[in-house]
């Protein structure tokens, strides 16, 4: 049986991206965050570790942190996926694939599929790690459904963001600088690691409030801790709209990419 072109491209993307560097970036760093930051910050609180109140529910910091770390998988997988275009342009493979039996849309699908695959597998591994801490998750069927949808939409959003950067960056230095800056800004100026409180500076609240990673983190917290509610659906709607906008922009830029860097 013939394999569709986008499946072959997805398989190629998996082989090319299964390397120690990518695995450390995708799984190693979040695992370190989960265990090191989780236990260190939890240790600060003298109050038996019940240090964060989320939607009125007091939880240990590790329980608060775990959904944020799982949400990070959407970001890292999106980064890995979006960066594939950059890498293919840099190493001449974009042009090589474009003169092969593939359509541009199939190449794009190959990137998006591998990003989503990495994201879902990575987040499943992180959930597994979280249970070893252990965390106090309250998982429902609706929660699992929303978690999967959120990871897919979130990954597509971040893939689109990095596709945009891959499409417009003119040099490796420019690409690396932009991605590192984004990595720090989106990672740490979000609610993935810390709750927003009254003592959080106003400007940082604004940044975290518009950061897509905050939306994903909070939807996952609702799914795993407080339960799916109207705010989950509201956040999901915003995330979906943001994803469609970014995806649209990335498509426009992608259509005009002609050759290597």
């Amino acid at each position: 049986m013939k394999m569709p072109a986008f499946v072959r491209l997805t398989m190629r993307n998996i082989v090319v991206n299964i390397d120690p560097g990518t695995l450390i970036f995708m799984l190693g760093l979040p695992t370190l965050y989960l265990f090191v930051m989780g236990f260190m910050f939890q240790g600060i609180n003298p109050n038996g570790g019940l240090s964060v109140v989320y939607h009125g529910i007091p939880v240990k910091y590790t329980t608060f942190l775990a959904p944020g770390i799982i949400a990070l998988q959407a970001f890292t997988a999106g980064n890995v996926g979006g960066s594939m275009l950059w890498s293919d342009r840099r190493w001449g493979m974009f042009e090589q694939i474009m003169v092969g039996p593939f359509r541009r849309s199939e190449y794009l699908l190959g990137i998006i599929f591998v990003s989503i695959l990495f994201s879902l597998i990575g987040s499943a591994i992180m959930i597994g790690f979280a249970f070893t801490i252990p965390v106090q998750f309250n998982i429902s069927l609706a929660g699992i459904g929303l978690f999967i949808l959120t990871m897919i939409v979130g990954t597509m959003l971040f893939s689109s963001l990095f596709l945009i950067i891959s499409g417009i960056a003119k040099s490796m230095q420019a690409y690396n600088t932009i991605t590192i800056l984004l990595f720090f800004l989106l990672d740490f100026a979000s609610t993935a690691f810390y709750p927003i409180t009254n003592s959080t500076p106003e400007w940082l609240r604004v940044v975290a409030g518009v950061n897509p990673l905050s939306f994903i983190s909070d939807i996952l917290r609702n799914s795993f801790i407080s339960g799916v509610d109207s705010s989950s659906l509201y956040y999901s709607g915003i995330l979906l709209v943001a994803m469609l906008i970014f995806f649209g922009i990335s498509l426009r830029i992608y259509k005009n990419i002609r050759s290597g860097i």
């Binding site: 082989v15 090319v16 190493w91 001449g92 694939i97 039996p101």
Partner: peptide
Amino acid sequence: VVQQEESFDFTSVENNFKLSGMLWE
């Protein structure tokens, strides 16, 4: 097509052959 510029998958030599074969069915 063999382009003038270098073009390769960022993996081993062997994988480059295997992937090319797989992509071309």
